[in-house]
Amino acid sequence: MTLDLLSVLIISSVVVNVSGIVFIVETLLRRDDGAGRVWALGFLAAMLTTLTYVLWARSGTELWALAAGNATFVTATGCMWLGCRRFNGRRIRRDGLLVVLGAGGAAVAVLVEGFPAGDWAGAVWMFLALTVFSAAAAAECLRGLLGATRSAWVLAVVFALQCGFYIARTVAFLLAGPESALFQVAFGSIALSFGTVTLTVVAVVILSVLRATRVPLVDQSRTTLSDIARDGIVSDAVFTGMWTALCVRARQQGATLAIVAVRIDDLGQMTTAFGADVTGLVIDEWRRGVAASVPVGAIIGEDSRAGLLVGCVVDDARGAREAATAVYRGVFDRLGAATHGIIPVVGVGVADSSVVGYEPHDLVEAARETALTAATRVDAAVISFEPRDAAQA
């Protein structure tokens, strides 16, 4: 059976678009505002890539379609990497600029080389950008929270295979040329399309599983007045306002502030092993454990990336650590009594104004970083933020 390029591109386009639509719709239904939203943007870029490549394959005269296809291809892989970094609780704004530069360079390279280069205009730039971003994504899957999740190891293999393929493709392109039999059979557009279909299916399944670990937290974030009265936990927007006001007053009066970040992870694996009812019970008891173990004057808010944030006034740095330790013990005591020993991975990190200062955002980010570290280590119950290294218990 002989397959022509246009037919293969159409088949690949159908698979990628269906997978992308499913992931994007699920993102909207779950109201995912974290890593899932960045991954959804990557799938949207992949969908645009297939459509522009089909347009180029049909016409061969719409150079802008090839430029747009190469740019969105780089964007898709770049967003996969950014989503992984966001999942691990890392900042992505500066890294997003690298993705924009990579995608822009891919488009400009096509326009510079123009029609004489044909289908392979700007190919080398695109290959190199895809190699870098896929390698970065594979590395990100093996660190932080992703590194502690076995599902992410499969995703790391997917990105590593993509990286290896583009390294080999670049070498074959430069040494043998795009018209050589070696390149056409092993690294041509038809071979790439079949690889894309396989990796897309695997990626959408793994990313959906990873995102499911955050869904219960996202569902809990739609806080109403009755919810606040029930467990004393406010929405992230309300917490931001209250926390900022508290930081201003503390700075004026010279008081010491502590911010405690509490993470709860492995919810996806817990749902698979014990069912959604058990996972829901764990989440409820975890929230009650945090609320019951903090000082009366503390404010507790939702945090889409770290679970819950607790802000309070303390006497000194030692008092901040004691508050975080009380939260850790309260959560585990509550979970142990209510769930009969079914304990998820919990990370507790604390930062105080004597070390970080009174900038609200800096305090929150410092607490998130330490909670992320605590959630991925077995030798630390509570970690306090320090300028260089974290002190652990």
Score class of each variant (00 low, 15 high):
residue 4 D to F: 01
residue 7 S to V: 07
residue 21 I to F: 13
residue 21 I to A: 14
residue 23 F to W: 11
residue 28 L to H: 09
residue 32 D to G: 06
residue 32 D to L: 02
residue 32 D to I: 00
residue 33 D to M: 08
residue 33 D to Y: 07
residue 33 D to G: 08
residue 35 A to C: 14
residue 37 R to T: 08
residue 38 V to N: 13
residue 40 A to G: 15
residue 45 A to M: 10
residue 49 T to P: 12
residue 50 T to K: 03
residue 51 L to V: 15
residue 56 W to Y: 15
residue 61 T to P: 11
residue 61 T to H: 15
residue 65 A to I: 12
residue 66 L to Q: 11
residue 71 A to N: 09
residue 71 A to Q: 09
residue 72 T to R: 04
residue 72 T to E: 03
residue 74 V to C: 05
residue 77 T to Q: 11
residue 79 C to G: 02
residue 90 R to I: 01
residue 93 R to I: 05
residue 104 G to P: 09
residue 105 G to M: 05
residue 108 V to W: 11
residue 108 V to E: 07
residue 108 V to M: 12
residue 111 L to N: 06
residue 112 V to F: 08
residue 116 P to K: 01
residue 121 A to S: 13
residue 122 G to T: 04
residue 125 W to D: 04
residue 126 M to V: 07
residue 129 A to I: 05
residue 129 A to L: 08
residue 137 A to I: 05
residue 138 A to H: 01
residue 138 A to Q: 07
residue 139 A to Q: 10
residue 143 R to N: 04
residue 148 A to S: 14
residue 148 A to D: 14
residue 157 V to L: 15
residue 163 C to Q: 03
residue 167 I to P: 02
residue 171 V to C: 00
residue 173 F to S: 03
residue 173 F to E: 03
residue 175 L to A: 08
residue 177 G to D: 03
residue 181 A to H: 14
residue 191 A to L: 05
residue 192 L to R: 06
residue 192 L to D: 09
residue 194 F to M: 07
residue 197 V to F: 01
residue 200 T to Y: 05
residue 202 V to H: 10
residue 203 A to C: 10
residue 203 A to F: 01
residue 205 V to P: 02
residue 207 L to W: 06
residue 207 L to P: 10
residue 213 T to Q: 09
residue 219 D to V: 09
residue 221 S to M: 13
residue 229 A to H: 03
residue 231 D to F: 00
residue 232 G to N: 02
residue 236 D to T: 15
residue 237 A to Q: 14
residue 242 M to S: 08
residue 244 T to G: 13
residue 245 A to K: 11
residue 251 R to W: 14
residue 261 A to G: 13
residue 262 V to A: 10
residue 268 G to I: 01
residue 269 Q to C: 00
residue 269 Q to N: 12
residue 274 F to S: 07
residue 276 A to Q: 12
residue 277 D to K: 12
residue 278 V to E: 08
residue 282 V to C: 04
residue 283 I to L: 14
residue 285 E to N: 03
residue 285 E to F: 00
residue 287 R to A: 14
residue 290 V to A: 03
residue 295 P to K: 00
residue 305 R to G: 08
residue 305 R to C: 04
residue 306 A to T: 15
residue 310 V to E: 03
residue 318 R to S: 12
residue 321 R to E: 10
residue 325 T to L: 11
residue 328 Y to E: 12
residue 329 R to T: 11
residue 333 D to L: 06
residue 334 R to G: 05
residue 336 G to F: 10
residue 338 A to V: 04
residue 340 H to M: 02
residue 343 I to F: 08
residue 344 P to F: 00
residue 347 G to L: 04
residue 348 V to R: 09
residue 352 D to Q: 03
residue 356 V to T: 15
residue 364 V to F: 05
residue 373 T to H: 15
residue 374 A to Q: 07
residue 379 D to S: 09
residue 379 D to R: 06
residue 384 S to V: 09
residue 387 P to C: 00
residue 388 R to V: 10
residue 389 D to G: 02
residue 392 Q to H: 10
